[in-house]
């Protein structure tokens, strides 16, 4: 059970990355390679607020969200909007992410920093397995976020509009929807959420500048398993990746965990390119 908790909480981290990818993908068909780096910045801001400045938790969360939202807004303006084709956006968002990694290293150094979380420091026992409060927090956050996003997309006008855009953006324009503005808003919201996510993942992964690359790739695997554009799919995909990684590390050795995730990625891409829950296949041309 302890192993499963570890897998699920690690998987929740990947699911959170996949949620970020999906929001941007649904709103603008772009792929934001810098998503994981946004979360990394969130974790660092949480560390600074919490440890360096000693601010109360709620202020820390708000601070991380606002800061990362601003960073995401800049990202959209400099790396996404001026670039027409999605393939080049991959390069420019990777570039932006690399800049963030570099800046994080300059500001916070390259040593991993331990980000504290609310509640008890000790692990608790639940259904015969042991887990930390931040692990439970991660799992709950990922599930709640997916549910909230699902409701938002069905209840709110802007949510309906974003789903409509993802189906036919020209038809959406003809209904008076400002597609560009909403796509920008989606980026800002991704940043907002990434700030929140950073606060939650920090205790699990530590705040470390090199967090981005591995997280970006595993988050993509979660996305590929779940299917592009499917929030539930990304959640399930994240959990699958987390569980596989923890089990492979436990039974085969830590050097096999990435390898098993890679094998799953290849298998899913070859056998079911639309993912388990996906309707929209990535464009192949």
């Amino acid at each position: 059970m302890t192993l499963i908790y570890a897998g699920l909480s690690l998987g929740a981290v990947y699911a959170l990355v996949a949620i970020g990818y999906n929001i941007v993908f649904v709103a603008s068909r772009s792929f934001n390679f810098a998503q994981a780096q946004l979360m990394m910045i969130g974790a660092f801001v949480a560390y600074t607020g919490h440890v360096t400045l000693g601010l109360p938790a709620i202020v820390v969360v708000a601070l991380a969200m606002v800061v990362v939202m601003l960073v995401a807004a800049i990202l959209e303006r400099v790396a996404v909007r001026p670039v027409a084709d999605h393939q080049t956006q991959l390069i420019t968002t990777l570039g932006f992410g690399t800049v963030l990694t570099g800046l994080a290293q300059l500001i916070w150094g390259s040593q991993p920093l331990d980000v504290p979380f609310f509640g008890a420091k000790e692990a608790m026992t639940l259904f015969g397995g042991r887990l930390y409060s931040f692990e439970l927090g991660l799992i709950v956050l990922s599930v709640v976020l997916v549910a909230v996003i699902h409701l938002y997309n069905r209840r709110m006008m802007s949510g309906l509009a974003i789903v409509a855009m993802s189906q036919d953006d020209e038809a959406a324009v003809l209904r008076g929807i400002n597609v560009r503005k909403l796509a920008f808003a989606a980026f800002a919201i991704t940043g907002l959420l990434a700030g929140l996510m950073g606060f939650f993942i920090g205790p699990k992964t530590f705040a470390v500048a090199t967090l981005g690359s591995a997280l970006a790739l595993k988050g993509f695997v979660a996305l590929a398993i779940g299917g592009f554009g499917s929030f539930y799919g990304g959640l399930v995909g994240g959990f699958v990746v987390g569980l596989v990684e923890e089990h492979a590390a436990r039974y085969l050795g830590s050097e096999f965990s990435n390898l098993s995730v890679f094998l799953i990625l290849i298998l899913v891409l070859m056998l079911r390119p639309t993912g388990l829950f996906g309707q929209t296949q990535e464009r192949t041309v």
């Binding site: 309906l160 509009a161 409509a164 189906q167 038809a171 209904r175």
Partner: peptide, 26 residues
């Protein structure tokens, strides 16, 4: 200015009610 394109370009996965609501977005 409202334009109904050819080929019945409705938002296929969304319900009729959601489609109509989106019509009033502006």
């Amino acid at each position: 200015v409202s334009y109904v394109q050819e080929g019945k370009r409705v938002f296929r996965t969304q319900t009729v009610r959601e489609n109509l609501l989106l019509g009033g977005y502006s």
